[in-house]
Structures are given as structure tokens and as C-alpha cells.
């Protein structure tokens, strides 16, 4: 057991060190979503969607979705290193070491999730500029959700990257599969304004609950008001299930392929 955690901690530490030593990665995951948020948000000005309060502007509306985008970019891109590690030969030496596969999964996912969490946290520092005043309670909820999404999305990246041999292939999957998940998460438009078929897709999208949860934490007058769909409890529960699901699947996938 001690060895499992020692190995996981070591793999986790490696992820963090590698990330910090590549400034392009630190900036690459953070700046594009911020620019996207800033330009689109400023361009549209007043929000066409009145979800919480009539004076809400679109920058405010986009804020939770942008956080999700930062997490998505950081966590998913951190798992590309699995493909590179396999090519470089680094992964071979980890696979034939006496550690259980679960410590590879644990170290790698927690490593990526840590990076995603802190990148998103950096962006969250802009919240006061948007007149988002977080109570301790709502900050706690936001951070909890952030942790769950970071682990869940890194897990998803792990499942894809572990089975792939080329980074180009990974990028295609990212565009084909992961970006639509973000588009449909309620990051750009709310559930209520979508047509019925789109709404169905959005309800099935696990990221919808992450964005909705963050939105509630940031803007709702009352965290547990009964009127909102999805409710905060449902958001937390869904995000937790998503996180558990991708983690378990990562373990299974990792055991299958060398």
C-alpha cells in the first residue's frame, strides 16, 4: 500500500514539474479560453439569456463555461503526455516496474487534475471584476465542483490517450468528441433556450451539470433554491458519478493494454 502511494505521488509530482518547466503549456491552456471569453463576452455585451438577473452581461454568463474550458484544455492536454511517454519509452519502464497499474492511473489522473484545478483557480481570481461575490459556502461548492470536473475530465483524457498511438489522432478525437461536449454543456447558451432535441442532448451531457453547478455557486441568490434545473444537489451528484465513472474506466483500460 505504501508503495502504491509512493509511486502515485512520484508520478503526480512528475506531472507537475514537467508542466511548470514548459511555460508554453501553462500559458497555452489558460490564455486562449480567457481571450475567447473576453472577446465573445465583450462582443455580445448584454446577455440575451436572462437566467439569474436582468442586468447580467454575457461575460458573466460565459464565466462558468470558460472555467470548464480551461479545465478541459489543461486536463485533456496533460494526458497527451501518455502518448508521448509511450513513444519516448518512458512509459515502458513504468509498466514493467513492480507497481500496480492503479498507481499509474492514480498518479497520472491526480497530476493532470491538479494542473487543471490550479489553472482554473487562477482564472477564478477574476471573479471580483465581474461583481461575483462568493460566500464561503459558494466558494466551497465551486472548488468542490472544480475538483470533481478536473478529475473526471483528466480521467476521460486518460481513457482516450491510453489507447492511442498518435497525438494527431488524439487531437481529432478531441475536436470530434470533446468540443461538442463543451458546446452542449450550457457554457454558451442555457438549457431553457434550446430546442427540445438539443435540450435532450444537453441533459445527457455530463458537463451540463458542472457548468450549471458553477453557475449556481456564482450567481444564485440561494444555493439550494428549488426552482433551478438542474438543482445543485443533482449537479454535485452527477459530477461525482462522472468522476467515478471515468476513474474506474481508466483503471480497466490501463489493465488491458501494455
Amino acid at each position: 500500500m505504501k508503495n502504491l502511494f509512493l509511486a502515485s505521488a512520484s508520478l503526480w509530482e512528475r506531472e507537475v514539474i514537467r508542466f511548470l518547466r514548459q511555460p508554453s503549456r501553462v500559458i497555452g491552456a489558460l490564455v486562449p479560453p480567457i481571450l475567447f471569453w473576453f472577446f465573445i463576452g465583450s462582443g455580445l455585451g448584454k446577455s440575451p439569456f436572462q437566467t439569474f438577473s436582468p442586468e447580467e452581461n454575457y461575460m458573466q454568463y460565459l464565466f462558468p463555461g470558460t472555467i470548464l474550458m480551461i479545465v478541459l484544455f489543461t486536463s485533456i492536454f496533460s494526458t497527451i503526455s501518455i502518448i508521448e511517454d509511450r513513444k519516448d519509452g518512458f512509459l515502458q519502464s513504468v509498466i514493467i516496474s513492480p507497481i500496480p497499474r492503479s498507481s499509474i492511473v492514480l498518479g497520472k489522473i491526480l497530476g493532470g487534475a491538479t494542473l487543471a484545478f490550479f489553472e482554473a483557480l487562477t482564472f477564478l481570481l477574476l471573479a471580483p471584476l465581474l461583481k461575483i461575490h462568493l460566500s464561503w459556502n459558494s466558494l466551497f461548492i465551486a472548488l468542490l465542483l472544480l475538483s470533481l470536473i478536473s478529475i473526471g475530465l483528466t480521467g476521460m483524457g486518460f481513457i482516450l490517450a491510453w489507447q492511442m498511438d498518435s497525438t494527431q489522432g488524439f487531437h481529432s478525437v478531441m475536436n470530434l468528441f470533446l468540443m461538442p461536449l463543451w458546446f452542449l454543456s450550457g457554457a454558451l447558451f442555457p438549457l431553457e433556450s434550446a430546442s427540445p432535441w438539443l435540450r435532450l442532448l444537453m441533459i445527457l451531457d455530463p458537463l451540463t451539470y458542472s457548468v450549471a453547478g458553477l453557475r449556481t455557486a456564482f450567481y444564485s441568490q440561494s444555493l439550494y433554491s428549488s426552482g433551478n434545473f438542474p438543482s445543485l444537489t443533482l449537479c454535485l451528484f452527477s459530477s461525482f458519478i462522472f468522476c467515478l465513472f471515468t476513474f474506474t474506466l481508466s483503471l480497466l483500460v490501463c489493465k488491458r493494454k501494455t
Binding site: 509512493l6 512520484s10 512528475r14 514539474i17 514537467r18 518547466r21 518512458f90 515502458q92 513504468v94 513492480p98
Partner: peptide
């Protein structure tokens, strides 16, 4: 085990690579 291509992490130092490997072996 020593593979045909060095199984080192190029972004880490010599010492960090060895430390990491040590951790994998308990």
C-alpha cells in the same frame, strides 16, 4: 531493465529521474 531507447524523462534532471525510478521500486 534497460530498453533500446532511453526511458528517461528529458524534462527532469538526472537526479530527479533516478529519484522517480527509486520511488517506483519502493
Amino acid at each position: 531493465v534497460i530498453f533500446q531507447n532511453p526511458s528517461l524523462d528529458k524534462k527532469l534532471s538526472v537526479k530527479e529521474n533516478l529519484t522517480h525510478q527509486g520511488h517506483l521500486y519502493g
